[in-house]
Amino acid sequence: MIGKIFPKSAGSFKNRIRYIFGCTKHDHEISGIRTISHNTMSRDPLPGVLQGNEADLTEMIKEFDQVETLRRFSIDSDKPIKPVFHAMLSLRPGESLTTPQWRQAVTKYMTDLGFDETTQYVAVMHQDKDHQHVHIVANRIRLDDTFSMVKDSNERSVSMDSVSEIEDRFGLTKAPRPKDTWGVSITHAELQASIRDGDLPLKHKMIAKIAGAIEATNAVDGDMFTFTRLLRKQRVYINLTLNDEGQPKGISFEFDGKHISGRQLKRSRLTWHKLITQEGINYDPETISELQDEIERRDSEEQERIRIHYYEFIAVDGKRRKPIYIKFTAKDYEFQKMIKEILELIDAIFDALFKPRECRLKRNYIEYIPGQRLLVPEELELSV
Rank of each mutant, 00 (worst) to 15 (best):
M1P: 10
I5Q: 10
P7C: 05
P7M: 07
A10D: 12
S12C: 12
I20K: 04
C23F: 00
C23Q: 14
T24W: 03
H26R: 10
H26G: 05
E29R: 14
E29Y: 08
S31P: 00
S37K: 08
D44G: 12
P45T: 09
L46E: 11
L50P: 02
G52R: 09
L57H: 08
I61W: 09
K62C: 05
E63K: 05
E63R: 08
V67Y: 10
T69I: 13
F73A: 13
F73Q: 13
K82V: 00
L91H: 03
R92S: 11
G94E: 03
S96Y: 05
S96T: 07
L97T: 03
T98V: 04
P100N: 09
A105Y: 07
A105C: 07
K108A: 07
T111Y: 09
G114E: 08
G114P: 03
T119K: 06
V124P: 04
Q127L: 10
K129A: 09
K129N: 11
Q132V: 02
H135Y: 09
R140I: 00
R142P: 09
R142F: 08
D144G: 11
F147D: 08
S153K: 11
E155S: 12
V163I: 15
G171N: 04
A175T: 10
P176Q: 08
V184S: 04
I186D: 03
I186N: 06
A193T: 04
S194L: 03
D199L: 07
L202Q: 07
K203T: 09
K209V: 02
G212S: 12
G212T: 04
G212V: 01
I214Y: 07
T217S: 13
A219T: 01
F225I: 09
L231V: 07
R232C: 01
K233F: 02
K233R: 12
K233Q: 13
V236T: 12
Y237W: 10
I238F: 10
N239H: 10
T241L: 13
L242M: 15
E245W: 00
E245T: 04
E245D: 15
G246S: 08
I251C: 06
S252T: 00
S252D: 03
F253Y: 15
E254T: 07
D256C: 02
K258M: 02
H259W: 11
H259S: 02
S261I: 03
G262C: 03
K266Y: 00
R269T: 01
T271C: 06
H273N: 10
L275M: 14
I276W: 10
T277F: 07
G280A: 09
N282F: 11
P285W: 01
E286T: 13
E286A: 13
E290M: 11
S300N: 09
I306V: 15
I306T: 14
I306C: 07
I308T: 15
A315I: 01
D317Y: 05
G318M: 00
R321D: 05
I324V: 14
F328T: 06
A330T: 11
E334H: 09
E341D: 13
L343N: 11
D347S: 13
I349R: 15
F350R: 05
D351E: 13
A352M: 02
C359D: 02
C359P: 00
R360E: 11
E367Q: 11
E367K: 11
E367W: 00
Y368F: 15
I369K: 15
G371M: 06
R373M: 04
L374F: 08
L374C: 04
L375M: 14
V376K: 12
E379P: 02
L382D: 14
V384S: 14
